[in-house]
Amino acid sequence: MPKLDGLGAAEELRRVLPQTAVMMLTTFSEDEYIASALGSGAAGFVLKSGDPRELIAGVQAVAGGGAYLSPSVARRVISHLGTGQLGKRATARARIEGLTVREREVLALVGEGLSNAEIARRLHVVEGTVKAYVSQILARLDFRNRVQAAILAYEAGLVPQT
């Protein structure tokens, strides 16, 4: 890309079209690059070296309002989240303290990687209600996307660990 790299293009897309979901497809798998992409609002991160089915799954997840990480990237993100988890847990729990019980339920399901439609089925509500909850959660937590919310849900211990 002659004028912008992938990170710059993602940031520009998020700036110009904030409602547009961004998914990174890249050869770069360094921790710093992954963190920069997710921190700048990317809802998905897929490695070109991965199984082509990951790209399809990622596009479908992100297009449906979800988030997607290549399995190898997800393992790395989770292992890094586990380092120092106890201190982060207290901070994360303090952040979600102001959410209602229902907002925490929705946040936990976002953390599990469920789409709005899947959350709606699980909670027996319409998808529009879930969209409203997700938007409200993102606004209250000052997040740009579901990936950031999912990370917080994990850090706060809302996501069951297997």
Rank of each mutant, 00 (worst) to 15 (best):
5 D>F: 08
6 G>S: 07
6 G>V: 05
6 G>H: 05
6 G>Q: 05
6 G>N: 05
7 L>P: 04
7 L>G: 11
7 L>K: 10
7 L>Y: 13
7 L>A: 06
9 A>H: 04
10 A>Q: 12
12 E>V: 12
13 L>Y: 10
13 L>A: 15
15 R>E: 01
15 R>D: 00
16 V>T: 13
16 V>S: 05
18 P>A: 11
19 Q>I: 10
20 T>W: 12
21 A>D: 10
22 V>Y: 14
23 M>S: 04
23 M>G: 09
25 L>N: 10
26 T>P: 01
26 T>H: 06
27 T>V: 09
28 F>D: 11
29 S>T: 14
30 E>L: 06
30 E>T: 09
30 E>D: 13
31 D>Q: 14
32 E>V: 06
33 Y>A: 14
34 I>M: 07
35 A>L: 06
36 S>K: 15
38 L>W: 07
38 L>K: 11
38 L>M: 12
39 G>C: 08
39 G>E: 05
39 G>I: 08
40 S>K: 14
40 S>R: 15
42 A>M: 05
42 A>K: 10
42 A>H: 07
43 A>N: 15
44 G>L: 03
44 G>P: 02
44 G>H: 09
45 F>P: 10
45 F>N: 09
46 V>R: 15
47 L>V: 04
47 L>P: 01
49 S>I: 06
50 G>P: 01
50 G>E: 09
52 P>S: 06
53 R>A: 14
53 R>Y: 07
54 E>S: 09
54 E>D: 12
54 E>K: 09
55 L>A: 07
56 I>D: 07
58 G>V: 01
58 G>W: 03
59 V>G: 01
60 Q>A: 11
61 A>C: 02
62 V>L: 04
62 V>F: 04
63 A>I: 02
63 A>R: 13
63 A>F: 03
64 G>W: 07
64 G>K: 13
66 G>I: 01
67 A>E: 07
67 A>L: 09
68 Y>E: 00
70 S>D: 04
70 S>E: 01
70 S>G: 04
71 P>L: 11
71 P>G: 13
71 P>I: 08
72 S>W: 02
72 S>A: 08
73 V>I: 15
73 V>M: 08
73 V>K: 10
73 V>P: 03
76 R>G: 08
77 V>G: 03
78 I>S: 12
78 I>R: 14
79 S>E: 10
79 S>C: 05
79 S>D: 05
80 H>Y: 03
80 H>V: 01
80 H>F: 03
80 H>P: 00
82 G>L: 13
83 T>P: 00
83 T>C: 01
84 G>V: 03
85 Q>L: 14
85 Q>S: 11
86 L>R: 15
86 L>I: 12
87 G>E: 06
88 K>F: 02
88 K>M: 03
88 K>C: 00
91 T>M: 09
91 T>E: 11
92 A>L: 02
93 R>V: 00
94 A>S: 15
95 R>E: 01
